[in-house]
Amino acid sequence: MSDTRLDDGVDTVPRSDAAYDVPEGATTYECGYCGRPFARESWLALHRGLEHPGALTDAEVAAFRTAHADEEESLGTFRLKALGSLILLYFGLLMVYALV
């Protein structure tokens, strides 16, 4: 969150308690630099790389690289799906217009 980003990411707690709302019993991966909780470990790794790039340990850098590579791969799949939906939408409407 950019609000906390202003704090330079070092040793911060969220300014207001209301910034996060973690359901009870949920698995969280908390950022050691700013305390922001995430539902997945890979998101935490990405967050650390994006928000606290200067402060990372080597292990965290490696985790960021892995998470980033995985993300690229899933984005590729997503793009294909999005393209498919666009084509379906376009030709679907085209057909409907031809019929009515």
Binding site: R79, A82, L89, Y90, L93, V96
Partner: peptide
């Protein structure tokens, strides 16, 4: 000149398609 449901669906589809297009920018 088109039925109302189709008119409305087209408007909705235009919004949806814009979203899909924006999602290509990563």
């Amino acid at each position: 000149t088109v039925p109302t449901w189709l008119f409305l669906s087209t408007g909705g589809a235009a919004v949806g398609a814009s979203f899909l297009l924006a999602s290509f920018v990563t």
